[in-house]
Amino acid sequence: MMAAFSDETVMRYVDGELDDETSAQVEAALANDPELSRRIELFAETRLAAQEAMRRMLDEPVPDALKGAVEAMVAKAKAAPDPTLATWRVGSGRPHIVSPANDWMRLAAAACIAGALGVGAGMLVGGETEPGGLRIANVDADAVATGLRSIPTGSETTLAGAATRFKAIATFRDSRQALCREFELDLADRSTVTSVACSVDGNWVVRFAVNAPAGDDGYAPASSSEALEAYLAAINAGAPLSETEEKQALDQLP
């Protein structure tokens, strides 16, 4: 029997896009149908020939200008992570990107995002030279220092003398091995300050702080976590310390 297979059926057979039943019919017809065999060859050979002919275009070097432009936008995209992401937390396995060449770009992005939030006096990106030390909003610096030294990650406390909740978020080391802690302060006005402070010669210094009004759910808006993410990437923040590591590190502080 000569089944009249359409070109499309034959082609689908060759491309593996034909159902099993019809494929079997094609194969059964093949034995007695040289014409069908020739048509199969046509579709198989054209596929291979097209692949072969186009392969060389992949070997063409991508022009430097294009490659450079795309690499730059990729670096920029990585500096400002997806706002839908959960904020970096202990154990969340935040990818640790170390690429010093791009640091300036990340720092610029961090400054840019934080700047857009209209952060006031609390914004101290790279503020190691800031003499204020640990002053955040009007919160008592000594109380914050005590919190930083004693509150394990994941715990919170109300700071003495103020209607302020201190929440320890994570502990890590920066590229110079200084011990740093990310923490949040819920202020009396219902805004939340997300900060990073690092211990330098026995003193806690605020490196980063961004104030955001709390939403109804009590969480800071995504934009502030973007700024934080960008900042952490910029200082090459190490992976978050484990509970044990954190305890050890805090105990060893001068």
Binding site: D7, M11, Y13, V14, G16, E27, L30, A31, N32, D33, P34, E35, S37, R38, I40, E41, L42, F43, A44, E45, T46, R47, A49, A50
Partner: peptide
């Protein structure tokens, strides 16, 4: 596209030189 490509390049000649042996 493939029939045009075949015709333009002579990928499969019309003289039936491919015997009944084709298979996927």
């Amino acid at each position: 596209a493939r029939k045009n490509l075949a015709a333009a390049t002579g990928i499969v000649s019309m003289d039936g030189r491919y015997g009944p042996s084709g298979s996927r």
